[in-house]
Amino acid sequence: MTDWLVTIRDIANIEMFRELGIDTLIVADERFSSSPCGLSRDQLAMAVAKIRKAGLKAAIRIDRLFYEDELADLESYLRMLDQLPADLIICTDIGVKQIADRIKAGYQIIYAPETLLTNGYEIESLKRDGMSGCVISKDITIREVYDILRQVPDYCYLKVHGPVLLSYSGRGYISSYLERKGNYLEGWHLVEETRSDVLPIVEKNGESWLYWQTLQSFSEISYLLKAPLKGLIIDNNLYKDEYTLKTVSLYRRVMAGEISGSEALEQLKGFDRSIKYLDINDLKATWLQKG
């Protein structure tokens, strides 16, 4: 049985996600995540408690890389999450697992470095090291994804919906350009001077995340659900819950055979005309690894 992991912004919506059959809700704090709408520690504790009370699992997004002078605070945060208790940690820095092991935290650790898990051998190695699961990188073909799933069954997660993260930087791009320090969280985007692609950008605490179009997998979802995946992720961290709820409900209708993948996509486009979509097959086919 494949788990569904979905981002949530407002804990008032937990029940609606539960009714849609979601297994795990992903929340994030202000400091240790890329999320433009991270929660305070108190809000996070409340969110975890409510998610668990609703019978769902609470996953915490910790998708930053950490510097040495942040480790003490990171360890304190990981201890707090263990006490809540959170069920899963989705992390980008391999050091998070080392700390979690040392403090004997009870939650599972899912490694999601975005670009570095492009082969099954890497993932087998992490499994041997005791990592609870891995999110397969986006920059490989769908055929390679299925090959990895055959090689390491029932262990991997795959992002099926949400803005594609293109890059993560230790530089505050917008504040450097505008020469004005601050956080630039929502509504900012870039357009290359000779192209039309809209690239959403988030700057937070001196780091930047650049995104591309929004990945969608309506036409592939039935196949993916037959593959030995541990979990599917809808990561709409740039969008409000109303959009994510609509997204989930459309996947459910496709899975139930009520509408086709293309009908689902048209309905979602109608929900917000400003969002540009990329089919998971196109994404994988586009990244041709020409080298």
Binding site: D139, Y168, R171, G291
Partner: peptide, 20 residues
Amino acid sequence: ANYSGRCTISNALTNRDANR
């Protein structure tokens, strides 16, 4: 400009795989 290895702008905009 970005954390090394954590960038796929080239892949997206030019079909050239930065990490290969």
